[in-house]
């Protein structure tokens, strides 16, 4: 009756509210935890101590070189057809503008095909705004990550993107972007749905829109750490079932949702099992990834460092898409692997978490490891509003719900325990 023991302890028993309370203490203490910052390193030290306080002894850290992009002053003023402040967030690691800013006319494209069909003369010297409608994150986020490169190739002097979200109260959403090789690095930022749509309407009426963009930032490299907390298995300690979330966040908001919730349900798994004196046959490893936001930097470093032992990863799990009410798992793996996980999920019908969604690339950090053939899963949860808050000042504790966090922590812990304890390994392709 392991499932019931874990669920009761977390949902009704001594652990009730603990995940939320510890997350709140953490978020209130450290706030945002950007890659390369001192506050991120202090928050890592705090999590190590929090695990030690629970009598977890197998804790290691692994150093990783990470980007340290620091946002400076940013503002955009619409100069024509009228003066208006435009809310923005620069996209890391955007370059700065000259101190006086960049003043230019805006040209708007709905998608990359429209840009490709425009002549260089039409784009050269202008600010390009991409205004795609949000469909799915995966489909739409390319306009954040690639817009600067695509616009620069056509001669643009800066690029803007309509924030990657379905909903806005004039909230810009930051995120990462990548400069391609051999293109001019131009400043790039996200603006709000409201301002992007305003500019679109003006331009569609053949009204000239002129902006002044001022953005300052610095970029260097620092050393950070992935953190590994092990609850050693009783029979096959070399074999791993990994639960994980990332500890870094963007510099706006406080990273309570992205990915404080995922971090703390993954912290909770070995803690709950230790408290209940439940030790599965295989080792449960909780990983707190560093520097996920600038490009899965911690995950790439872990994959490289542990490549020779990757056969020992029996299953890898990650929560980085919200810790709202759990619905089940988004699973990548062989047919037999999915069948085993499906049978395990049947045990969670009572809490509404028995859905198995097939997904070739669940999670963010763990995608790096899953693509090498390791089976894994992301937490499938009721996250319809996740992108309302994602990478904004709104990512605070108010997004989190204590009862939903309890359900996630209980589900996460019980699933990891069962996978780590059953007779069969999770088979690969």
């Amino acid at each position: 009756e392991v499932r019931d023991e874990i669920l009761n302890y977390v949902i009704n028993g001594e652990f009730k509210g603990k995940t939320f309370d510890e997350l709140a203490k953490f978020v209130d203490t450290f706030g945002a935890r950007p890659s390369g910052s001192e506050v991120l390193e202090k928050s890592i030290d705090y999590m190590i101590q929090l695990a030690r306080d629970e009598d977890l002894k197998d804790i290691t850290t692994e150093e990783v070189e990470v980007p340290h992009w620091v946002r400076g002053e940013e503002n955009i003023t619409m100069l024509e057809p009228r003066v208006k402040n435009i809310a923005l967030l620069g996209l890391g690691p955007s370059v700065s503008t000259p101190p006086e800013g960049i003043t230019a006319e805006v040209i708007v494209f709905n998608d990359f095909d429209e840009l490709e069909n425009a002549t260089n003369d039409e784009v050269t010297g202008k600010i390009v705004l991409f205004d795609p409608e949000f469909t799915t994150y995966g489909e739409t986020v390319v306009y954040r990550s690639q817009s600067a490169t695509k616009a620069a190739a056509k001669g643009a002097v800066a690029s803007l993107v309509r924030s990657i979200t379905q909903f806005s109260i004039n909230s810009p959403h930051t995120g990462s972007q990548v400069y391609g090789d051999d293109v001019n690095k131009i400043p790039t930022a996200a603006i709000t749905l409201e301002d992007a749509d305003l500019i679109r309407r003006l331009v569609d009426r053949d009204v000239k829109v002129k902006l002044n963009i001022r953005m300052q930032s610095t970029l260097d490299t620092k050393t950070s750490r992935n953190t590994l907390v092990d609850l050693k298995g009783t029979v096959l300690p070399e074999k791993l079932v990994i639960v994980s979330g990332h500890i870094d966040s963007w510099d706006v908001g406080q990273g309570a949702m992205d990915d404080g919730g995922g971090l703390f349900v993954s912290w909770a798994a070995p803690v709950i099992l230790k408290r209940l004196n439940l030790r599965p046959k295989r080792t449960i490893r909780s990983i707190f990834w560093t520097a996920e936001e600038p490009g899965l930097v911690g995950a790439y470093a872990y994959e490289k460092k542990h490549r020779n032992e990757s056969d020992n990863i029996n299953f890898i799990m990650e929560s980085d898409e919200g810790t709202f009410a759990p619905l089940g798992l988004a699973v990548s793996g062989s047919q037999k692997a999915r069948c085993i996980i499906g049978e395990i999920l049947k045990l969670f019908e009572s809490i509404g978490a028995s859905e198995l969604v097939e997904d070739d690339s669940p999670g963010s950090d763990i995608a790096v490891i899953i693509k090498t053939g390791v089976p894994g899963a992301g937490l499938h949860n009721a996250n319809e509003k996740y992108f309302w808050f994602h990478h904004t000042e709104g990512d605070t504790m108010n997004v989190e719900d204590p009862d939903e966090l309890d359900l996630c922590a209980a589900f996460w812990t019980a699933v990891a325990y069962i996978i780590a304890d059953i007779s069969d390994d999770i088979p690969r392709e």
Partner: peptide, 25 residues
């Protein structure tokens, strides 16, 4: 997405493993 059919899983896993997993509940 498409979920695995129950019958496919039953033959892949076998009764013993299915019963073992169910025993955790």
């Amino acid at each position: 997405r498409v979920l695995s059919k129950e019958s496919v899983c039953q033959s892949l896993l076998g009764e013993e493993l299915i019963h073992e997993i169910a025993s955790y509940g």
